[in-house]
Nucleic acid binder design. Structure first.
Length: 433
RNA sequence: GUGGCCGUAGCUCAGUCCGGUUAGAGCGCCAGGUUGUGGCCCUGGAGGUCGGGGGUUCAAGUCCCCUCGGUCACCCCA
């Protein structure tokens, strides 16, 4: 390696660890992920979305279109040169790739797509903020109707409710058209220039760099100094204002509680018109945004496609799970195992019988390595199976099995092998005594 | 990227301030009590280069420096 800054691969004495800011998800926690994904897929399907898979890396330019004023693009991009000298980057979020795919394939509109994907950002990790995190999300291309904005938000809300979340709130805002947004930028810069010295020191340099960000500062001094700052909602064109009105009216009509927050801004600067965030009220942390989204009417064009309106949201799986933990909701699903086969003879019966049970559509696991009956029964208990099928010397000789209920009073019966599947089915339908 | 706190068995942690014989607990795991029966109980066992490296010292889990990782705030965001 000629690059003096590159580090040699390490060979730690205690073995390797997942890279900084990344993590492994093992069972049983992974079962929550599966269930969460199934929930999202089900709801997206209900709303007419089809799943889209796009590459995990793209030409760097695809992501640069997201905006140069954005940290996600300017300092957190996981970009590199591949062996062919191409400048590529691991995706930092879902939208840009999906819109790129739209522009490339031109599916008929309205195009409603959902995705589940890892996302990469080179930043200093902490809880709820990782170098590789995972998002589910949706995008709608080719619909300008504000009612789709309502539908997109409704889908997000339905998703959180389906997971059992309650303690969250929705804030919405409108950035107006690109034209409105430009006007507002001018008005805001003018205002901020006048009060710059009254802002908290840490916020002063944002006045030129990222004026919108001054407004969502959490510092009291800045909040006081900007109390009279112009609001986006005040400078919207009539058309933009009416559009936003239609969105909030729709949310009201559907009974989706929300607050209009004129100071809400979002990082990626492709947003126009509707902007929204679902924030956790249960997470005591700066990383409380569990869903973020909005409309991006200029993005398809910026990626070389026809002028196409778009709207969508992304939701961080880790953060949603953190939120659900804080609410004590969405428990880990149980294993769903029907039976566990315990064979204390030579294991041949377990080998054959377990597979027969699976042929019959049951979920079954078994003990291995000729462990003691006590050990295998512990395994059966741990597996979460409803019943244990026990084969000892007696059963092996008689061609029978003992079926033991692992719940309740743990009744057991010895039956012929031909009757096993039906008897298990009957047992599965009975409540534990 | 900046600053604070933390890092001891698989997990949660005590011990670190005031350095001193074989580093502890609970949970989990394994085995036995119960040579055909899990979940409760009892007994025993395995498991730790005290995140890693260097330094100070007769002596370092304990003090100092560096480094890696986690965490919190900022920045920013899912």
């Amino acid at each position: 390696m000629s690059d003096p800054t590159s580090k040699a691969p390490s060979t730690p004495a205690k073995g390797f660890k997942a890279p900084i800011g990344t993590h492994d998800v093992l069972a049983p926690e992974s079962a929550r992920w599966t269930a969460l994904l199934a929930t999202f897929a089900g709801i997206a399907g209900q709303y007419g979305y089809g799943m889209v898979h796009t590459p995990m890396f793209e030409d760097l330019g695809v992501f640069l279109r997201m905006g140069e004023g954005t940290d996600v693009v300017t300092k957190e991009m996981y970009d590199f040169e591949d062996k062919g000298g191409r400048r590529v980057a691991l995706r930092p979020e879902g939208t840009a790739s999906v819109v790129r795919a739209f522009v490339e394939h031109r599916p008929i509109v309205p195009w409603k797509a959902w995705y589940a994907t890892p996302a990469f950002r080179y930043e200093k990790p902490q809880k709820g903020r990782y170098r590789q995190h995972h998002q589910v999300g949706i995008e709608v291309l080719g619909v300008d109707d504000p009612d789709i904005d309502v539908e997109v938000i409704a889908l997000a809300d339905r998703y959180l409710k389906a997971l059992g979340a309650e303690r969250y709130s929705l804030v919405v805002n409108s950035m107006g058209s690109l034209h409105d947004r430009r006007n507002y930028d001018v008005a805001l810069r003018e205002f901020l220039a006048g009060v710059k010295n009254d802002l908290a020191d840490e916020d002063q340099d944002k006045v030129e760099r990222n004026p919108l960000r001054v407004l969502d500062s959490k510092r009291r001094q800045t909040m006081q100094a900007t109390a009279d700052a112009p609001r986006v909602t005040d400078v919207l064109s009539t058309e933009s204002a009416e559009r936003f009105e239609r969105v909030t009216e729709g949310l009201d009509a559907l009974g989706i509680r929300h607050t209009v927050e004129p100071r809400l801004v979002r990082g990626l600067d492709y947003y126009t018109h509707t902007l929204f965030e679902f924030q956790s009220d249960a997470l005591d942390s700066a990383q409380a945004t569990i869903i973020g989204g909005g409309r991006y009417n200029g993005l398809a064009e910026a990626l070389g496609g026809p002028e196409t309106p778009g709207i969508g949201f992304g939701s961080g799986i880790e953060r949603v799970l953190l939120h659900l933990d804080a609410e004590d909701a969405f428990p880990t699903p149980d294993s769903g195992l029907d039976v566990f086969v315990v064979d204390v003879t030579d294991g041949r019966s377990a080998r054959d019988l377990t597979e027969t049970l699976r042929d019959a559509g049951l979920s079954a696991d078994r003990g291995f390595d000729g462990r003691s009956m006590k050990a295998q029964m512990k395994g059966a208990n741990r597996s979460g199976a409803r019943a244990a099928v026990i084969i000892g010397a007696d059963e092996a000789a008689a061609g029978t099995v003992t079926l033991r209920d692992l719940r309740g009073d743990s009744d057991q019966q010895t039956i012929g092998r031909d009757d096993l599947v039906t008897t298990i089915r009957t047992l599965l339908e009975t409540d534990p005594s």
